[in-house]
Design a protein around this nucleic acid. Structure first.
Length: 231
DNA sequence: TTTATTTGACCGCG
DNA sequence: CGCGGTCAAATAAA
């Protein structure tokens, strides 16, 4: 099983290291929001045609909390996420100077001809930066005690590529050095017709323990099933 | 030199 | 026309 690291960062840095390598391609001030939104896409978009993107924005209410929205799924092979010893796929670099047209080609390849945003998985993750020492910022208290049980979740994709949350072993059960972050998962889609599609939108809220070393914070993620349904 | 970030321009949609 | 998303040239970093 592979893991996504939810990495704490200090202060104003972006605390969102999910194990993938992202490349920033845009930055926008959002109307009505206090903080701008950063736009990232997978580093391997060109080399592997990976269409995953994400948007990172500081929450209005608490500047120590980041809202991260994931759009699309990774179809790439990320070297950092490979098992040690697993041979790394050689990626040929081709057509780096692609024109806008070729982007549509990629989309069509992925979605079978329908460059429709409804085909994306959309996941929103709200990350609280634990080490953010803002005077007014409340001390991040792990929320797993408040609403434990079903709210400590691992997440995986169902066979129909829907993003799902499921109950996970409590942090105490993990004897390893990987610490499960208390992620509260709110499925704010819940069968509502956000659009006329099966548009998944999940929200995670994470309050990471203060004292933890950033390198030890892991969100256990069922990447096996995740990868298993990538086209 | 290669790769990533910054940042204003551009574009589509409502 | 405004807003949100993306592009791409300039710039920075490795």
């Amino acid at each position: 099983m592979e893991q996504v690291r939810a990495c704490e960062q200090s202060g104003l840095e972006e605390p969102v290291n999910d194990g993938y390598s992202w490349r920033k391609y845009g930055h926008k001030d959002i109307y009505g929001a206090k903080h701008p939104r950063g736009y990232y896409r997978c580093t391997h978009k060109n080399s592997q045609g990976c269409l995953a993107t994400r948007q990172v924005q500081r929450t209005d209410t608490d500047t120590s909390i980041f809202s991260v929205m994931y759009l699309g799924r990774h179809t790439c092979v990320q070297a950092s996420r490979l098992q040690p010893g697993q041979p790394q796929k050689k990626v040929e670099q081709h057509d780096k100077k692609r024109k806008r047209k070729s982007q549509e080609t990629l989309i069509n390849f992925q979605t079978g001809g329908h460059a429709n945003t409804n085909d994306y998985d959309t996941t929103q993750v709200v990350l609280r930066s634990p080490s953010f020492s803002f005077p007014s910022a409340p001390v991040p208290i792990p929320c797993q005690q408040k609403e434990s049980n079903s709210n400590i979740c691992s997440s995986h994709l169902t066979p129909d590529n829907h993003f799902m949350s499921s109950s996970l072993s409590s942090p105490s059960t993990s004897g390893s050095n990987s610490i499960f972050s208390p992620y509260r998962v709110n499925n704010i889609e819940s069968g509502h017709d956000l659009q006329t599609s099966d548009y998944d939108l999940c929200e995670f809220e994470s309050a990471l323990p203060l004292a933890l070393d950033s390198s030890d914070l892991y969100l256990d993620w069922d990447w096996d099933s995740f990868d298993g349904f990538c086209f």
